[in-house]
């Protein structure tokens, strides 16, 4: 498997540092232990703590990306509805792009393009008297002051920056998906509602914010919940962005280990990947339950099939 250069890195919530000594006292010489204590020691090594921590990395990425993508999507959908033609074309093009090209291409491309773009801008601002070309053959060379992050920055800045690039890549792609969904939802709000608003003398801006936006969510929910599930299922691609996620650690831990390591074992990758499978099945299952509940709440009082069913049940 090749994994191209992205200037992405990962934010590894560093659990290794916080575990100074073995969790269990009897772990001092693992080669003498029986199976069960050996396994307990093995599963509590610093490396495993990093593995457990990477589950949190994934959840953090989801928690940060989802609202940003939703905001991107909202902007895209508004642009696509705009009466100003160039803005509308931009919105339509943005929403169309994810349908034509696999998301993976964006994940590989966006972080490095953003990184080089930002460095180039900073280079123009901070080093105006630099006379060498920025692209020298294969190299992308900017002055030291324009480097992102500065090479003198502490490690956590490098990690955070890489994580931010990964979030940006996810937000761009899923923002486009969300724009699709929200555009459809805005169109689905009954025309009569908007006309009523206009009859009361509301401006276009007022009808949009007071009538369309509050009511569109029930129409957007099925699409958004679907999108959330897609986002969850896209998180293993973090691995391709250089983020030390659960896939990275599963491969690293599962590979066979010689006695150079404290806990030698044969190839256990299958078990680690089974654990990841279970994690994702649980995550999608729980998400579906929550969305089901949310959908019932949002349908309340709406002139839709679901809302009507609730009304009848209550009578």
């Amino acid at each position: 498997m090749t994994s191209p250069d992205r200037n992405a890195i990962l934010a590894q919530l560093n659990f290794a540092r916080s575990v100074p000594r073995p969790v269990f006292d009897f772990c001092t010489d693992p080669s003498l232990l029986d199976d069960l204590p050996w396994l307990a020691c093995y599963l509590s090594t610093g490396k495993h703590m990093a593995f457990y921590g990477s589950f949190i990395t994934v959840l953090v990425l989801l928690a940060i990306t989802a609202p940003i993508a939703l905001a991107f999507g909202f902007g895209g959908a508004m642009a696509a509805r705009s009466s100003f033609a160039p803005l509308r074309w931009f919105g339509k093009a943005y929403t169309a792009m994810v349908r034509g090209v696999p998301d993976i291409a964006f994940f590989l491309f966006v972080p490095i393009a953003m990184d080089q773009g930002l460095e180039w801008l900073r280079h123009k601002v901070k080093c105006p008297d630099w006379d060498l070309p920025v692209r020298q053959g294969n190299d992308f060379v900017v002055c030291d002051a324009a480097k992102l992050p500065l090479s003198s920055s502490p490690q956590w800045v490098h990690e955070g920056y890489g994580f931010a690039l990964a979030v940006a890549a996810f937000a761009v792609v899923f923002g486009a998906f969300a724009a699709n969904v929200l555009y459809g939802a805005m169109q689905a709000v009954p025309r009569g509602q908007v006309e009523t608003g206009e009859a009361y003398g509301m401006t276009a801006r007022q009808t949009f914010w007071r009538i369309v936006v509050p009511q569109m969510w029930v129409f957007a929910l099925p699409g958004l919940s679907n999108l959330w599930l897609i986002l969850v299922k896209a998180t293993p691609l973090l691995f391709l962005l250089g983020v030390e996620d659960i896939v990275y650690w599963a491969r690293e831990l599962g590979g066979s280990k010689t006695s150079t390591f404290t806990y030698p074992h044969s190839d256990w990758r299958l078990y680690y990947f089974l654990a990841l499978l279970v994690f994702y099945l649980l995550l999608t299952q729980i998400s579906e339950k929550i969305f089901g509940r949310l959908s019932r709440r949002l349908s309340h009082g709406q002139a839709t099939l679901g809302g009507e069913a609730q009304r009848k049940a209550a009578v």
Binding site: D5, L10, P154, Q155, E159, L241, Y248
Partner: peptide, 11 residues
């Protein structure tokens, strides 16, 4: 792919 892991080793 840049992969900086282990901030650990700030030696």
């Amino acid at each position: 792919m840049k992969r900086i892991l282990l901030g650990t080793a700030a030696l």
